[in-house]
């Protein structure tokens, strides 16, 4: 049975009539043409599908549409319009933190969540903050450097 589900997506009100047992990732990618969040594992392990829900990072591949009703969702498509994103993008570029790039949008959303709660994280805090976002290319160290750079150069943004 379909239900009317309403939520805010990147600042826009959305109402969609769909069964609440759809994976939110599919709703984004198939129904709303939001393809920045990627499917890597389909079981909440790799983090490529990460989005923010009311400011909290969640894995959209195991998020039922029913849980999104009444929430505010931010994906990379919305986030990339912000100053914070620009600071992260510059830092990721400068440090070489993106290789194949499939994990990167999720990694950026995880970083936003981390920095918004902890604007000056230590290495260890970054490592644990990214624990739900797997990357097979970089070995993470350049990502960690990029986040520290963004925290420093984007001082005051978070």
């Amino acid at each position: 049975m379909s239900e009317k589900i309403s939520f805010e997506l990147n600042g826009q009100s959305i109402t969609i009539t769909l069964s609440p047992d759809h994976r939110f990732l599919d709703v984004l990618r198939k129904h709303l043409n939001i393809v920045g969040p990627k499917e890597g594992c389909g079981e909440g392990e790799c983090g490529a599908c990460s989005v923010l829900m009311d400011g909290y990072i969640v894995q959209s591949c195991i998020l039922p549409l029913g849980s999104v009703h009444g929430k505010k969702i931010m994906t990379i498509e919305g986030y990339r319009e912000t100053k914070r994103f620009k600071a992260l993008q510059d830092a990721f570029l400068t440090e070489g933190a993106s290789q194949c790039g499939i994990c990167t949008p999720g990694m950026i959303m995880a970083t936003e969540y981390l920095l918004s709660h902890n604007p000056h994280p230590t290495d260890e805090e970054i490592r644990h903050g990214l624990a739900g976002n797997l990357c097979r290319c970089t070995g993470y160290n350049m990502i960690i450097k990029a986040i520290k750079r963004a925290a420093k150069e984007g001082e005051g943004l978070w």
């Binding site: 990339r80 994103f85 993008q89 400068t94 070489g96 993106s98 790039g101």
Partner: peptide, 12 residues
Amino acid sequence: DNVEAADKIAGL
């Protein structure tokens, strides 16, 4: 800067 990375980071 990696020439492809800016788009990858932005989810493009």
